[in-house]
Design a protein around this nucleic acid. Structure first.
Lengths: 126, 126
DNA sequence: CAGGATCCAGCATGATACTG
DNA sequence: CAGTATCATGCTGGATCCTG
């Protein structure tokens, strides 16, 4: 991804467009907070404040910002209940669920190699 | 990950350590450039300059910086050939390969939902 | 060729205050 | 409760120059 060489033909223009779009999506998604949000949602539906509690260390601003971004990309769905005080809920869409599966893989990987990595770090820092 | 609540017992102290380490690794890895580097390496061995050409848009600095980080975490191996001019090669280690598999999943996901996402974006922006 | 060091612009982020 | 807006700032990352 992002490594191909294109020429000047119309077909290549399309490929280039798809490629840069892929890059863009990649940048959106390969981001700490976005991944943690998706992971936190899992198959549940959570309110804004619940997400905030769920994800340790995330600021109000980052949460809103990333939720908007994920909504824009169609990965989470935002439901506003017209009550006072407001109740806003977030759920993963089908694309979001599909992404979650791969993120689960990333989490598993992290757990599996935790020891490896810690050792490697100590060796490197010496 | 990063969502659990711990108490004050010694066992919990260990869990907390592992948890914060996991967070740290997650932050290291959930980064655009790191992922692109791992993806670029694949099962090949590449030189510094080759990586630089392979990954469109990466700066000298970001490449070095991320390579160091990946080396520190034991995901890539750095081999220096004592010749002039210097020849330095990078390969994925076994943990790195394992990670690459999950990143491949992420790339597949991106390709599969490219259309979905583009549509969703247009709808959102209106 | 690989990579360290430095300088600096600009963006990302956090804190705070305000609205419906 | 959820969200927006504003401001201060610290860090990220690019450009550049230098070394073995």
């Amino acid at each position: 991804m992002g490594t191909k060489q294109f020429g000047g033909s119309p077909e290549d223009a399309d490929l280039r467009r798809a490629d840069s779009l892929a890059r863009e999506i990649f940048s959106d998604v390969a981001n700490k907070w976005a991944l943690l949000i998706i992971e936190a949602l899992g198959e549940r539906t959570l309110r804004f404040s619940e997400l905030r509690n769920e994800i340790e260390g995330i600021s109000h601003k980052m949460l809103t910002q990333n939720l908007r971004m994920l909504e824009r990309n169609g990965l989470v769905e935002r439901t506003v209940h017209p009550v006072v005080p407001p109740r806003v809920e977030y759920t993963l869409t089908e694309p979001g669920q599909a992404l979650r599966v791969t993120i689960d893989g990333l989490c598993d990987w992290t757990q599996r190699y935790l020891g490896h990595i810690e050792t490697s770090r100590h060796r490197f820092d010496a």
